[in-house]
Each structure stands twice: as structure tokens, then as C-alpha cells.
Amino acid sequence: MTDGTATRSAAAASAERRRRRVPYLLLLPGGLWLAFFYILPMLQLAGTSLKSGSFAGGYRFSWEFSNYGAGFSDFSAQFLRSIAYAGLATLITFVIAYPLAYFIAFRGGRYKNLLLVLVIMPFLFPFLLRTLAWKIILADDGFVVDTLKAIGLVSHNGRLLATGTAVVAGIAYNFLPFMTLPLYVSLEKIEPAMVEAAHDLYANPRTAFRKVTFPLSMPGVVAGTLLTLIPAAGDYVNAQLLGTPQQSMIGNVIQSRFLLVLDYPVAAALSFTLMLAILAMIIPYIRFTGTEDLVA
């Protein structure tokens, strides 16, 4: 009897230990993935950014912090342009995506899923092809330029392709789904009774939106803007295909440093500088918007 109880409790204890291991086992694949494909390359990149030497003579690790200063001072124009283009494109995307997501979430009815598929549809075509298509759409003899010229929005000998406008428009277009989907998710989650409660408490539709709907959609606003802003700041495809070297962004510089000039240390230093710049922008943004309250 006593032995039986002891065996049973020992079995229970080992079952308990196994149960406690389960969460870690579940974490393992993701953890390994991050370790091998994220942390290791990052460390390697960090190491590269502190090397000195030349491609021909080989690069040696030498705590070469000057790579950072040199990279930033040589390419500050591209840095600023990247942030300006990405910021502008994020703003445009937001202005287009919010009403779109709002409409799908609150007025989509039985067409909700169809409308969402339409939003995601461009993803079925490769990024590069989509951007090349824009190159054709914005071409000097294309109908867009002709139309804009006809209504006087583009001057007689003006053009769209190879301008900053084209690059910003391309980025905004390419990242629209990244903005729309998180916005849709957070808007769709809002109980209709929340808005009714606001109306019930004397808020007209405009005030109800300002005081209830919009604040409740903040997690989507933050997620959408970050998902757009971060990749947009490092993007080089739009600037390369829709712009000229006058519109080149920091992504173009990093790409050419890595692949053409083969100046790995400066390319790596630029990558880190970009990452830190983005972090410096988004941490206060997340703090300010206070989304942690809504997630809780």
C-alpha cells in the first residue's frame, strides 16, 4: 500500500516535470531559428562593421568604429531621404488604408473576406514585377502622366518616373497591405456596442470616432505604421526602379556597398546605423501611443 502510493507519487512527479518542459520544447524550433538565422548573422554583421582593410587585401577585425562615422557622414543625404520617403509613404499608406480597413470591418458584411482577398491580391505577384509595372504606368508617355498633364497637375514637360514622387508612390503602393491588415484586425475586433455606448452617451459620430473607435484601433495603427515604416526605410527596389541616383535611399547604398563596391565593413556599419535610427524613432512612438494599455 505504502509502496504503491510512493510509486504513484513518483510517477506523478515525473509527469509534472514533463509537463513543465513542454513550453520550452514548443519554444525550441522558433528559438533555434532565431539563433541561427537572426542572432548569428547579426553578430557576424556587427563584427564585420568593426573590421578594417580592403577587399583585395582581406578584412581584419580591429574595432574600427570609424566605419560608422564615415558611413554616416558620407551618406547622410541618403539617410535623411530614406527617412523622409519612408515617413511620407507611411503617411500616405495610412490615409488610404484606414478608411479602407474601416469600410471592410464595419460595412463589408458578407463581402468582408472577398474584400480582404482583394487587398492581399497584389502579393500574388512578385514585388519586383509589381514595381516594374508601376514603371510602365508612370512612364512619360503613359496615360497617368497624360491625364495629370491634361488637368494641369503635371507641367507640360514634367514627368513622374524618375522623381521622388514616383518612389514614394511606389513604396506606398507596395506596403499598402501591411498597413491595411493590422488596421482591419483591430477595427474588426471593436464591439459594435462600444460605438453604440458612445452614441448613447451623447457622442455624435465624429466624437465617437475620435474618442472611442480610433483609440481602440491604436494597436492596429501602431502595428501597421511599423510594418510599413521599417521595411520602407530600408527599401531599395522602389528607388532603383522608379527613381534615379538623385532619389537613392540608404538601402541602395547598402546594397551597392555590399554587392558592387564590396566594402563590407561600411555596408555593415550603415545597416546598423539604419537599425538604430529606426529604433530611436519607434521606441518613443510606441511609448507615446501607449498601446501596452490596450493589449493588456
Binding site: E191, A193, E196, A197, H199, D200, L201, M218
Partner: peptide, 28 residues
């Protein structure tokens, strides 16, 4: 419209505003 009627409602799901404090909910 509801916001122009002198009635108020207690909703089945309560529909309290999660982003506002209790004070601001009551003061809404």
C-alpha cells in the same frame, strides 16, 4: 439619433471603454 435622446443604456456586455479609466468612463 441616440446621442440626441434623453435616455441612457446599460448594455448587456457593459461596453465599458477599455482605453479609459473608470473615472473617464463614468464621466464620458
Amino acid at each position: 439619433k441616440p446621442y440626441a435622446r434623453p435616455v441612457n443604456t446599460v448594455f448587456q456586455s457593459y461596453a465599458l471603454f477599455p482605453h479609459l479609466s473608470i473615472f473617464e468612463n463614468v464621466a464620458f
